[in-house]
Amino acid sequence: MWRFDPDSFRASQVRPGVIVVAVALLAYPLIATNFFIFQIGAYSLLLGTVALSLMMLAGYGGMVSLAQLTVAGFGGYMMAIFGTNSVDVHGFGWPWWVLIPSVILASATLSALIGAISVRTEGIYTIMITLAIAVAFFYFTRQNYAAFNGFTGFAGVEPPQVFGVNWRAPVPFYYLALAIAAFFYFAVLYGSRTTYGLALQAVRDNSRRMNSLGYDVTAIRVFAYFLSGLIAGTAGIMLVWFNGRISPGSISVSVAIDILVIAVVGGLRHPIGPFIGALAFVLLENFAIDLIDRERFNTVIGLVFLFIIFFSPDGILGLWERIRPHLMRKPNVARSDGARK
């Protein structure tokens, strides 16, 4: 459970499993084809990062927001408008070192704004209100040509040539996505045991008590939206570079729900969950199509979703935690694990 021992993180950090995964992720481009590096590897990391921003809000803050993709999409649009694009609408061409921090900050600010609107609601109402915001932003971008170029959106949005590297090439892009994913993964993991992280989880469990201990519950929640907006906005920049383009279709409700599915299927209890969910989703999206036709894809996703939620409310992560003791049948280990709960 969520404990507050300053040493616990350091101890768990150097488990052999972590090293194996790290080495595998770093060595992956050496053995994989470009398709697997870019379309599977990098894309999973990016979707996982967006879902991580939701996991942080929902898992630690108890706030399930459907507007995370809206924040990411906003970041993407800002890149196209204030950076460069190929459709001759806006494209102010700000230098990357001004553009990128500004866009991340603007996304986080938008996220905080969304938070300020929705934090007074709870549970299903938070989902409803953030869904309404997501839908409103979708239609707004579709109808607004002055700023968002309407239905067409923007194309030709590319990463800058920094250090002479073509960051859109599969291998550099993969490593960039990996670095960003790893950074936010460890930031969230570390953050969960900071003073603020503890307060956020305490608000989730018992907001009334937190209020009567002197905490401004609303401020704590809005700040969580701000932080998650930093993650979602950064992922949004990467996504627009990944696709090269952004249009209302990129931020439609069905994609927003995909993000929710990824986070929930992966597991909301640990920041690794969203990445597991994203990988499963991307693999299904790419290969289920070989088995069934495109139209049925959503049915497959839906069934997988139902299956996992039915057998494990904590997602794939929870499934794994349940299976693991059976795989490692060392009686002593199993017993001490069970006792610790």
Binding site: F4, P6, F9, R193, T194, T195, G214, Y215
Partner: peptide, 14 residues
């Protein structure tokens, strides 16, 4: 912590 400062500290308590 609730009645002191640094409620938003993004550091772990030492």
């Amino acid at each position: 912590r609730g009645v002191s400062r640094n409620r938003f500290a993004l550091r772990r308590p030492r």
